[in-house]
Nucleic acid binder design. Structure first.
Length: 470
RNA sequence: GGUCCCAUCGUCUAGAGGCCUAGGACGUGGCCCUCUCAAGGCUAAAACACGGGUUCAAAUCCCGUUGGGACCGCCA
C-alpha cells in the first residue's frame, strides 16, 4: 500500500497571486487530483513586516477564481510559532543548532567584504565553538551544517543534483526576535503536514540541500521534490510588473476566462503531445511530471489571448451572458442593476461569440445592440454614408417599414429585391446599413444584426443615417 | 565571484539513437470562403547555440565553450 499523496502550495502574502505562483499552485493541484491526493494551502507569513492580511485575501481570491480548490488550510505560519520554537529547542538540546551572537551589521559587513574579495559570502561558523553566551547580546539560532560530504537532491524533474556540503553554511533558523525563518519553517510544516511531494519553483532548488539536512536533524524522511522551471518575461528576465499584468486577478478584470488562463499556464512547461486545449478533467487525467520540461518559459500574451478566444467560442451563450454583465456595466453600456432580456441577450451573444477574444470585447460589441444611439466611426461614415448610398438607404427604409416578418429570411429577401433592382452587389447596400446600424464597418452578418437590433431601432438608425447624409 | 540549473522556429512545445526532408500551436505573409469583421480551411517563411567526441547512425548519449537563469539574507 502506498502513501497517500499530500502536496501544498505555500505562497507568502507579500503580494497578489501572480502568474508564476498560480502555475506552481496549478501543478500542485493537478498532481494532487491526478493521484486522488490532498492539496493543502499554507500561508508563509513569517516575514511580519511584509506580509498583510489583504494579500492573504487576494491570494485566496485568485485561487478561487481559477478554480484551484484546496482540501486543507489555509494554514498560517504565524499561528504555529510555538511549534517551530519547540523544534528549535530540540535541535539546540541535541547540539544540532547553536546560538549566534554576531549582529546583523557585522554580518552585512563581512558579506560585503567577502564579495569584494571575490570570496563566497558565507557565514564562517564562528559562534559554533562559543562556550558561553555573550553578555548583552540577544542571539539568533543557527543550524549546524555538516562540513564534509555531499548532499543529493533527487528531483522528479531534474534528476539527481549533487551539492558539496562545504558550499552550505550555518544558516539562521531563529531570528534574534524569536521568529523562525523560511528554510526552517518550510521543513517543520512539511513534516507536520505529512507532505509527500514538494512541488515548487526552480528558485528553491539551491535551498533544498539545506532543507534536507533539517529533515535529517529532525529525524524525518525527506519528501519527493519537483522543481518547476521559471516563467520569464519577453526579455527573458524574471516576470515582473515591467512585463505588464502579472497578477492573476488582472486577467479577470481584462475579461479572460479562468479556464483559459489555466490552460495557458499549464502549457508553460508541460505538454501532452500536440494537444493545446484541455478540459479540467483532461488536465487531471493526463498530468505527470514526465511531461514537464526543464527549461524556463517566456510568457506570451498573444497565445493566451488566442486561447481565451477559443474558450469563448466554446462557451455556451447562456454562460457568457452571465459572465458579460459586469463588463457591460464596466464599459458603461448598461447601468448597475439594469435588467436585460435574457433570451435576447443569448441570441445577441450567439452572433458575437466567435469575434470576441475577451469578455471586454464582447461587452463592447454588445454596445451597438443595446445602446439607444450609435456613434459613427468617422472614416466609416465618410466612406459609406454618402450620396452614393442615400437612395439605397431610403428605399430600404421604406421597404423595411412595410415588412411584417422582421427575420433574417425576410430581411434577406428585402435586401435582395433592392440590390437586384439597382444591379448592385449586396456589399453596396450592406456596408452603408452596417455603418448606419452599428456605427462601424465590422459586425456579424447584417441580417443577424438587424434581426437582433429589431425593427424599431433599425428604422430609427436608418432615419438618422439618412439625415446625416442630408 | 562561487555553487546549481537550463539550451529545438520570434514565442510555447513534440522529439526517449535510425520512424526527422525536425512535427504541432501562437504570431506573421498569401490564398479560399464571404455583405464587413471574425471563425474556419489550405499554404508559405521560420529552429536542433557552437566545437569536439561515442556510434554503422546523434536534435537525442558524453565532454568542453558560449549564452541565459537561480541561489549564496536575522526575505520567502
Amino acid at each position: 500500500m502506498t502513501e497517500k499523496v499530500r502536496v501544498r502550495f505555500a505562497p507568502s502574502p507579500t503580494g497578489h497571486l501572480h502568474i508564476g505562483g498560480a502555475r506552481t499552485a496549478l501543478f500542485n493541484y493537478l498532481y494532487a487530483r491526478h493521484n486522488n491526493g490532498v492539496f493543502i494551502l499554507r500561508i508563509e507569513d513569517t516575514d511580519r513586516t511584509r506580509s498583510t492580511d489583504e494579500y492573504i485575501e487576494a491570494i485566496l481570491e485568485g485561487m478561487r477564481w481559477i478554480g484551484l480548490d484546496w482540501d486543507e488550510g489555509p494554514f498560517r505560519q504565524t499561528d504555529r510559532f510555538d511549534v517551530y520554537l519547540s523544534y528549535v529547542d530540540t535541535l539546540l538540546k541535541e547540539g544540532k543548532a547553536y546560538y549566534c551572537y554576531c549582529s546583523a551589521e557585522e554580518l552585512e559587513e563581512r558579506r560585503k567584504l567577502a564579495m569584494a574579495l571575490g570570496r563566497q559570502p558565507r557565514y564562517d561558523g564562528r559562534c559554533r565553538e562559543l562556550k558561553g553566551p555573550v553578555p548583552g547580546v540577544v542571539p539568533s539560532v543557527r543550524f549546524s551544517m555538516p562540513r564534509e560530504g555531499r548532499t543529493v537532491v533527487d528531483d522528479l524533474i531534474r534528476g539527481k543534483v549533487v551539492f558539496e556540503n562545504t558550499q552550505l553554511d550555518d544558516f539562521i533558523i531563529l531570528r534574534s526576535d524569536r521568529t523562525p525563518t523560511y528554510n526552517f519553517t518550510v521543513v517543520v510544516d512539511d513534516v507536520d503536514m505529512r507532505i509527500t511531494h514538494v512541488i515548487r519553483g526552480d528558485d528553491h532548488l539551491n535551498n533544498t540541500p539545506k532543507q534536507i539536512h533539517i529533515y535529517k536533524a529532525l529525524g524525518y524522511e525527506t519528501p519527493k521534490f519537483a522543481h518547476l522551471p521559471m516563467i520569464l518575461g519577453s526579455d527573458k528576465a524574471r516576470l515582473s510588473k515591467r512585463h505588464g499584468a502579472t497578477s492573476v486577478m488582472a486577467y479577470n478584470e481584462m475579461g479572460y476566462l479562468p479556464d483559459a488562463l489555466v490552460n495557458y499556464l499549464v502549457r508553460l512547461g508541460w505538454s501532452y503531445g500536440d494537444q493545446e486545449i484541455f478540459s479540467r478533467e483532461e488536465l487531471i487525467k493526463y498530468f505527470s511530471f514526465e511531461n514537464v520540461g526543464k527549461a524556463a518559459a517566456v510568457f506570451n500574451p498573444d497565445k493566451l489571448l488566442w486561447l481565451n478566444s477559443q474558450y469563448i467560442i466554446n462557451s455556451s451563450s447562456e454562460k457568457l451572458s452571465e459572465m458579460v454583465i459586469p463588463f457591460l456595466v464596466k464599459v458603461k453600456i448598461i447601468a448597475e442593476g439594469q435588467e436585460l432580456d435574457g433570451a435576447w441577450l443569448v441570441r445577441a451573444i450567439n452572433t458575437l461569440r466567435e469575434r470576441s477574444r475577451t469578455l471586454t470585447e464582447l461587452a463592447n460589441s454588445l454596445g451597438y445592440y443595446i445602446a439607444d444611439e450609435v456613434n459613427y466611426n468617422e472614416k466609416a461614415k465618410e466612406k459609406f454614408l454618402n450620396e452614393k448610398s442615400r437612395d439605397l438607404l431610403v428605399e430600404l427604409k421604406t421597404c423595411l417599414e412595410q415588412i411584417t416578418e422582421f427575420s433574417q429570411q425576410g430581411l434577406e429577401a428585402a435586401f435582395k429585391k433592392i440590390t437586384e433592382k439597382h444591379g448592385v452587389k449586396l456589399g453596396n447596400l450592406a456596408q452603408p446599413v452596417r455603418v448606419a446600424v452599428t456605427g462601424g464597418t465590422e459586425s456579424p452578418g447584417i441580417f443577424e444584426v438587424l434581426e437582433i437590433v429589431g425593427k424599431e431601432k433599425t428604422l430609427k438608425r436608418l432615419e438618422k443615417a439618412i439625415e446625416t447624409i442630408g
